[in-house]
């Protein structure tokens, strides 16, 4: 569930960049104070491990589709939230650069969705209280599954929010959420089960690593700092929302109608199949009450004013000019290539 550059607006992308960069700086600062130097190679290798682990797919029971490990929660349990957040952020960074998975502008969103939620929300606020000091298999199991599900649901909601607020995709909040949340519910359950199993394996073989990870670092003051960070993130997101809303009057409407529709989506409907059926239904009837028809009459004019005008007259010249532009670009590419090749020959 990587966000892509093609789907986000600079306001959303920029805001999330600022938030994620701030979190990276915050995590690095805290790590500099507390980090055991032997954890430096451990963090790097754990990042590479998540990469390798994501290459192996698992079947999601009951659906026939497959998913792979997100790994945020697992790393938070093993390394502590700060180190885990940095490791996940670095995985996403490399994916953005080399696999073009997501993209550079969307990187902020992806770090927020896949790193911040599991490391700073699911782990300290869900996993730790549930697992407590007990290391019994049951507690770890319950805590892992609940935390993984919540972390992934929050992440999926993040994707939906960011996409809808960017306004490049036509999907409404409700439709997109009803696509994303159920499938990530299933993936979350598997992620939780896998996390619990792996944690117990590590507890057996390397108890000293778990001691490092879940040490006393999350004392009261750190909790408050994490919460403060989240509040700032929320405020910034709100700022972006306002910015977005002023540029595109109908954007806020979407988001608000989406929020009011949320309870209904989050209510358990029982069983993955039922969920999927509901999604199908939703998508099938969407054109009837989707965004386009909703404001096709009254707001068509404001829309033209808000976005660069598209009218039949300019379209033809746009296409002719576009083709010519591309020809010029292709030619200049060819010239540059020729020049750099001849220079290479001259040099060699």
């Amino acid at each position: 569930m990587h966000m892509a550059d093609a789907l986000i607006s600079p306001a959303v992308g920029g805001t999330m960049w600022v938030v994620s960069a701030g979190m990276i700086a915050h995590a690095s600062r805290r790590l500099r104070k507390t980090l055991d130097e032997s954890h430096i190679p451990l963090m790097g290798v754990m990042g590479a491990f998540i990469f390798a682990a994501q290459m192996i797919n698992f079947t999601i029971p009951g659906t026939g589709s497959s998913g792979h490990l997100g790994g945020g929660l697992l790393l938070a349990i093993l390394l502590g939230p700060d180190a885990a957040f940095l490791a996940i952020a670095s995985v996403l960074f490399v994916q953005a650069l080399f696999f073009a998975d997501g993209g550079l502008l969307a990187l902020g969103c992806n770090i927020f969705n896949l790193g911040l939620f599991p490391c700073y929300l699911a782990y300290p606020l869900v996993y730790r209280p549930l697992a407590g000091k007990n290391t019994g298999a049951r507690q770890v199991w319950t805590a892992s599954v609940v935390a993984a599900v919540l972390g992934l649901q929050a992440g999926a909601l993040g994707v939906v929010f960011e996409t809808v607020m960017s306004g490049i995709s036509e999907l409404s909040f409700k439709a997109f959420a009803s696509l994303m949340l159920p499938i990530h519910l299933a993936i979350g359950v598997v992620e939780g089960m896998v996390t619990a199993t792996v944690v117990s394996v590590v507890r057996h073989a390397h108890p000293e690593i778990l001691r490092h990870g879940s040490g006393e670092r999350l004392a009261g003051s750190s909790y408050r700092r994490v919460l403060a960070g989240l509040l700032i993130a929320a405020a910034l997101t709100g700022g972006a929302l306002a910015w977005f809303a002023s540029a595109h009057p109908d954007g806020l409407e979407w988001a608000v109608s989406g929020i009011t529709g949320r309870e209904e989506i989050e209510a358990p409907k029982g069983g993955v199949h039922a969920e999927l059926a509901a999604v199908q239904e939703n998508v099938a009837i969407l054109p009837d009450y989707g965004f386009a028809t909703a404001n096709s009459d009254g707001e068509a004019k404001t829309e033209e004013a808000a976005w660069p005008a598209v009218s039949a007259g300019t379209t033809v010249s746009g296409i002719v000019g576009g083709v010519l532009t591309l020809i010029v670009i292709a030619l200049s590419g060819w010239v540059v290539k020729r020049r750099s090749e001849t220079r290479k020959v001259a040099a060699g």
Binding site: E37, I40, P41, V45, A48, N57, T59, V194, V201, V202
Partner: peptide, 30 residues
């Protein structure tokens, strides 16, 4: 087919233990 969650967790666990051992050796080298 891709493995189910049980087998998947075992494979991931093995991979993780190897990774941890490697990290310890790298730290030693450093």
């Amino acid at each position: 087919r891709a493995p189910g969650p049980g087998l998947y967790a075992q494979m991931i666990g093995t991979l993780l233990l190897r990774a941890i051992a490697r990290a310890q050796r790298i730290y030693l080298a450093m």
